[in-house]
């Protein structure tokens, strides 16, 4: 079941939409490097139409915000956490119009959260331009208690809510922005193998 899963999203990489009237780039941590790479493929005019929402996350030491500021975006909002980014994003999308192009760059759970906000705002997920950067950590939903476990790097992993040992399946839900976790030892209680660090 480890073969490429068709529910697994693909993140083709950031490319500029030169027709968009307004670009909204939402990024965290090393995702900033994807934005800096994007800058090499486009122009200053592009960034003059661009708002960047940036969460430093684990990349604070790299001072990406200075590099992003040098792109001269229309706005650069540096925000301290995922919830504050999403709150700002929700507010921006509430008044955005159809000429807006949304971009997301960062870890998979981060992109997942951006897509969730996009769906809620009436944007088709296929319209969002995405690039995966940084850790391969996952957000996992426990199919039993429905709790989300963040920053999962191992398989199996203990649900952070109900404590069940979960096998992390490659099956991904865009609506939930999470992979599916299913009890690993239901048929032989206590037989769960030790967690293996695989989503680094």
């Amino acid at each position: 079941m480890a073969a490429a899963m068709l529910s697994r999203p693909v993140y083709p990489g950031l490319v500029p939409d030169m027709h968009a009237k307004h670009n909204l780039i939402v990024t965290e941590g090393e995702g900033a490097e994807a934005v800096l790479d994007l800058a090499t493929k486009t122009s200053a005019e592009f960034f003059a139409r661009t708002t960047i929402l940036y969460c430093t996350a684990g990349s604070a030491a790299k001072d990406h915000e200075t590099a992003l500021a040098k792109l001269n975006p229309k706005h650069l909002w540096v925000l301290p956490s995922l919830p504050t980014v999403m709150f700002r994003l929700k507010g921006v999308l509430a008044t955005a119009d159809m000429g807006t192009r949304l971009y997301a760059a960062g870890t998979e759970p981060f992109i997942g959260s951006v897509i969730q906000e996009a769906l809620a705002a009436g944007i088709d997920f296929k319209s969002v331009v995405t690039e995966h950067r940084g850790s391969a950590k996952r957000r996992v939903q426990c199919v039993h208690c429905k709790g989300m476990t963040e920053n999962v790097t191992t398989n199996p992993v203990a649900c952070s809510h109900c404590g069940i040992n979960l096998f992390v399946r490659d099956h991904y839900s865009r609506r939930l922005g999470a992979f599916q976790g299913v009890i690993i030892d239901a048929e032989e209680p206590g037989s769960a193998p030790p967690p293996e660090e695989i989503y680094r």
């Binding site: 027709h19 968009a20 009237k21 159809m98 000429g99 807006t100 192009r101 088709d124 296929k126 319209s127």
Partner: peptide
């Protein structure tokens, strides 16, 4: 629609 920045999905 493309020139107006509309995503093709719409």
């Amino acid at each position: 629609a493309r020139d107006a920045g509309w995503p093709a999905e719409n």
